[in-house]
C-alpha cells in the first residue's frame, strides 16, 4: 500500500524531532494534507496503527487537517475552490488561475512534553 511507506516516513521525522528536542511523550501528531495531494487521509489513518506498533509512539494519536484546493483567478482575482468549481472561476468563468493551496503534505505540529 502506497500510504504505508509514507506513514513510516512521518514517524521517522517525528522521532528525529523528539530526539532533537528532548521530548518524552508525544500525545498527538498533526498532519496537513491538501485536497489535491496524492495522499488519501482515510488510508493514512488506517496505516497509522501499523507504523506505530512496537515503537515509543504506540499511544500517540493522529489528527489530519485537510487543506482546501484554493486558486486565485488571473482575470478577476476571485478566490475559489478548484474541485468544487471544476477548475473554472465561478465569477468570470476564466480557466486561467494560480493555485494557492491544496498540494500540502506536511507535519504541522506535535502535542508533546
Amino acid at each position: 500500500m502506497h500510504e504505508l511507506g509514507v506513514v513510516f516516513e512521518v514517524i521517522k521525522t517525528v522521532k528525529n524531532f523528539v530526539d532533537k528536542n528532548d521530548l518524552t511523550k508525544v500525545d498527538t501528531i498533526v498532519l496537513q494534507i491538501g485536497e489535491l495531494s496524492s495522499m488519501i487521509p482515510k488510508y493514512i489513518h488506517e496505516c497509522f496503527p501499523a507504523a506505530i506498533d512496537g515503537t515509543e509512539f504506540e499511544e500517540t494519536k493522529l489528527v489530519i487537517e485537510i487543506i482546501p484546493a484554493a486558486a486565485i483567478c488571473k482575470g478577476c482575482k476571485h478566490v475559489f475552490n478548484i474541485i468544487k468549481h471544476k477548475s473554472q472561476c465561478p465569477e468570470c468563468e476564466s480557466l486561467e488561475w494560480g493555485m494557492l493551496t491544496g498540494k500540502e503534505f506536511s507535519i504541522k505540529e506535535v502535542i508533546a512534553c
Binding site: 521525522t13 528525529n16 524531532f17 511523550k25 506536511s106 512534553c113
Partner: peptide, 18 residues
C-alpha cells in the same frame, strides 16, 4: 498531569528523505 504543549514542526513529509 503531564505538561503537554504544541510544538511546531512544519516539515514536509518528504523533506528528510530529500
Amino acid at each position: 498531569m503531564k505538561n503537554f504543549k504544541i510544538l511546531e514542526i512544519k516539515e514536509g513529509i518528504f523533506d528528510n528523505n530529500n
